[in-house]
């Protein structure tokens, strides 16, 4: 067991854990969108999980830092909050959804993050960024909503883990990046209707199984 100090409280955890996982398992919340605890190499793309660790001159992402004995961590310093709020505002500048119409039961991860960071769901002071993508994209078994997607990469990862083929992937690049689907395979050959791992893990409701598919999934489990 390893002991570390988080926000002046001592917590215990196992060797090999990331600081983020150790905190989450000890009831200390750190905002995160792209973290999957079984994932060997963290994706580290959402940039929400910043903490300050003694010995580093600036905040670091807690999902990429391994725990060490005696580590002193702070999750709520002004530099940490500054970066987290900016990361959140940046995400919201491409994510026009509103809490009232959120398709995720109980509200998506972004709503919870906003509450935790005590910021609104708007991108202010940033402007909303227009993107040349469709509102809805047909991915055979799913409807993909690019404007909801925060590109956390979780769906791509779980798909690769659960299926031999990597059906989901990042498509385009830079600001135009979206989730793509190798849709030219005969749908009947695809494991999607029994899997649904991606839609389940998506933190923002950007991948919604088509209703007929859900029914099918229910009727032959």
């Amino acid at each position: 067991m390893i002991k570390l100090i988080v926000d002046e409280k001592e917590i215990e955890t196992e060797e090999g854990r990331s600081v983020l996982q150790a905190c989450l398992e000890n009831g200390i919340f750190i905002p995160n969108l792209c973290f999957i605890k079984t994932r060997q190499q963290p994706h580290a793309s959402c940039r929400l999980c910043f903490v300050e660790i003694e010995g580093f001159d600036r905040p670091v992402t807690s999902c990429t830092e391994k725990v060490r004995e005696g580590l002193v961590v702070r999750t709520d310093t002004p530099p940490v909050r500054r970066l987290q709020r900016m990361a959140f505002k940046l995400l919201m500048s491409g994510h026009p959804c509103e809490a009232k119409v959120c398709p995720v039961k109980g509200g998506c991860q972004l709503i919870r993050t906003a509450k935790y960071l005590k910021v609104g769901l708007n991108p202010k002071p940033l402007e909303f960024l227009e993107r040349e993508v469709e509102e809805e994209v047909d991915l055979t078994f799913f409807t993909y909503y690019p404007f909801r997607c925060v590109l956390c990469g979780k769906c791509v990862y779980v798909c690769r883990e659960k299926n031999e083929h990597n059906l989901l992937t990042f498509a385009q690049r830079g600001f135009d990046t979206v989730i793509g689907f190798f849709g030219d395979i005969d749908p009947t050959d695809l494991p999607c209707h029994t899997c649904l791992a991606c839609a389940t893990i998506c933190p923002t409701g950007a991948l919604i199984p088509k209703p007929e598919l859900t029914r099918e999934a229910k009727s032959n489990p």
Binding site: A87, L90, L151, F175
Partner: peptide, 12 residues
Amino acid sequence: GKCTFCRMGTKH
């Protein structure tokens, strides 16, 4: 396009 700051921030 991987991480939030660079993907969205440089565009702003």
